[in-house]
Each structure stands twice: as C-alpha cells, then as structure tokens.
C-alpha cells in the first residue's frame, strides 16, 4: 500500500518534470493551429516575401517583410549598442572595479533588470524620444533608433550577468600564469581572460538578442509603429512583436488578420527557439 502510494507520487513528480516539454509543444501547437490557417487563403510565399503589411487594405496585404526588417533593424541597433557596453561593463565589474564600486554597479544593473518593460517604454516615449527628435532634427522622435537604445538597456543586464559568470569561471591559474610572465593587467584581460570566456560571450550575446527580439511593449511605444520597410534607423518602424500586440485587439476572431498575427507569432517563436538553442549549446560547451 505504502509502496503503491510512493510510486504514484513518483509518477506525479515525473509528470511535473515533463510539463516543460509539454508546454513548449503546446505553445507551438496553438501558434501553428491558427497560424497555418492563414495559408488557406494567403499563399505562404506572399506572407514570407510580401513587402506590404496592410490588413485594412482591399484586398488585405499580409507581407511579413516590413515587420521582419523592423525587428531586424531594432534588434541590430540594440545589439550594436548593448553588446560592447555590456561586455565592457562586465569586464569592469569583474576585473577592474574596486569592491565598493563593484557592489554599486552590480546593484545598478540588477535594478535595471527589474524595471518593467512598460516603464522603460513610458520613459523612453516621454523623455528620450523628444531628445532624439531634437538631436537629429526629425519630424518625430519615435524611431528605430530610439527603440534600439531603449532595448539595448533592457538587454544589458542579461549580457552583463552571463558575461560576468563566464569571466569569474576562468581559472585563477590562467591569470596568475599571465601575471607571472610580466603581462600587464590589461594584457591579461584581453589576451587570456576574454579568449577563455569566449563561449560565455557567445551565449550572452545570443541571449541578449533573444531578449531584444522578443521585447514588445517598450518597442511598441517607442518605435513609432509604421509598418513600412525602413530605409534608415532614424525612421519609424514596426516590429513583429509590436504588430501582434497592437493589432490583436482590433481583429475579429477567425479572420485572416487574426490568423496572420498567429503566423507572425509562429515566426517569432521559431526565431527565438533557434537563438536559444545556440546559446544553450554555447553554455553547455563551456561547462564541459
């Protein structure tokens, strides 16, 4: 009897363990269920390669290209800002800063990580966008650049914390060996420590990108929401995430528009899935 209860409990625990796999499958299934329905009326190639996103036009246009390029541009901009800053900050925290400053910087980065994205979006919209507008004398400050800057600061905590782990995982003996050969601290950092932590860098960059590409609210509020193919980073754009969030409320359940938004979600899911697999592989390799 007790034996039976025990094995029942073990089975129940196993079920909980398997839940994560189940959820990943469920997420994909429910995105695909409605996403694929789009292709009953819209050709797959028109969705993937169409250069107009205009659900209200007659006939409606569901080309993901402008949204994809919008996401790409914002992500690219944010990565270009956040990766160097994040890595530099992590090296400074892990290797150079004196103890009190290290604690201060770490607390600051943790604070940054804890700010909800909607608040970043709000501050970005009310404070940063006017600033960008004035600086480049643009008709509007709500541009891809503003979005990229805001997103960069949301990705930085991720990059810093993973990078810092990678740096502190470099064995002490490497450092001592380098110092013993008469190398300066900086030579040790960029010739020994950074190469030794390289897979951590890969992982942090990938996860940072994953964070940025999936970010929704801040991007929606800051990038200006124009679903056209952007030519420069100083124009308004609309990302895939923002499109879903902004338009889902206006769609009719079961319409092509509704299905199209799920199809966009499916594309997003697949992109982040791939990014996370790469990051995980990098971290896994490092552990070995």
């Amino acid at each position: 009897m007790r034996k039976f209860r025990e094995s029942l409990i073990e089975k129940f625990i196993l079920l909980n363990g398997l839940a994560s796999i189940l959820f990943v499958i469920l997420i994909f299934f429910f995105l695909a269920k409605d996403g694929v329905a789009l292709f009953k009326t819209v050709r797959l190639s028109d969705f993937l390669f169409g250069i107009f996103w205009d659900p209200l036009a007659e006939p409606p246009q569901f080309g993901i290209v402008p949204l994809f390029l919008g996401s790409l541009m914002v992500t690219f901009g944010a990565t270009a800002i956040s990766v160097p800053l994040g890595i530099a900050c992590a090296i400074f925290i892990g290797e150079i800063a004196p103890r009190w400053m290290r604690e201060f910087l770490k607390a600051g980065v943790e604070l940054l990580a804890a700010i909800p994205s909607i608040v970043i979006g709000f501050i970005g919209m009310t404070m940063m966008a006017p600033f960008v507008k004035k600086m480049f004398s643009l008709p509007t400050g709500l541009t891809a650049l503003s979005g990229a800057i805001a997103l960069a600061f949301m990705a930085i905590p991720t990059i810093v914390s993973i990078m810092e782990d990678a740096i502190s995982a470099v064995p002490r003996s490497y450092r001592e060996g380098s110092f013993a050969l008469g190398a300066t601290h900086w030579q040790t950092i960029y010739r020994v420590i950074i190469p030794a932590a390289s897979s951590g860098i890969v992982a942090s960059v990938m996860l940072g990108i994953g964070r940025v590409i999936g970010e929704t609210m801040a991007v929606m509020m800051i990038t200006g929401n124009a679903a056209v193919i952007p030519r420069t980073i100083l124009e308004p754009v609309r990302t895939m995430t923002a499109t879903i969030a902004a338009e889902m409320g206006e769609t009719v359940r079961g319409s092509d528009h509704y299905f199209a938004l799920f199809a966009v979600g499916m594309v997003l899911f697949l992109i982040t899935f791939a990014i996370n697999l790469i990051a995980d592989a990098a971290l896994h390799r490092e552990r070995k």
Binding site: S20, I21, F23, G214, M248, L261, G265, F269, T272, N276
Partner: peptide, 15 residues
C-alpha cells in the same frame, strides 16, 4: 525545453 520556455517572447505567451 526549460531554456526555450525562458526565451519565448512575452507577446507569444500572450498569443
């Protein structure tokens, strides 16, 4: 699966 759940965009969770 856990790693991937952690990376799914929040709006996709919404969908």
């Amino acid at each position: 699966a856990i790693v991937n759940l952690a990376g799914v965009p929040s709006v996709v969770y919404g969908l």
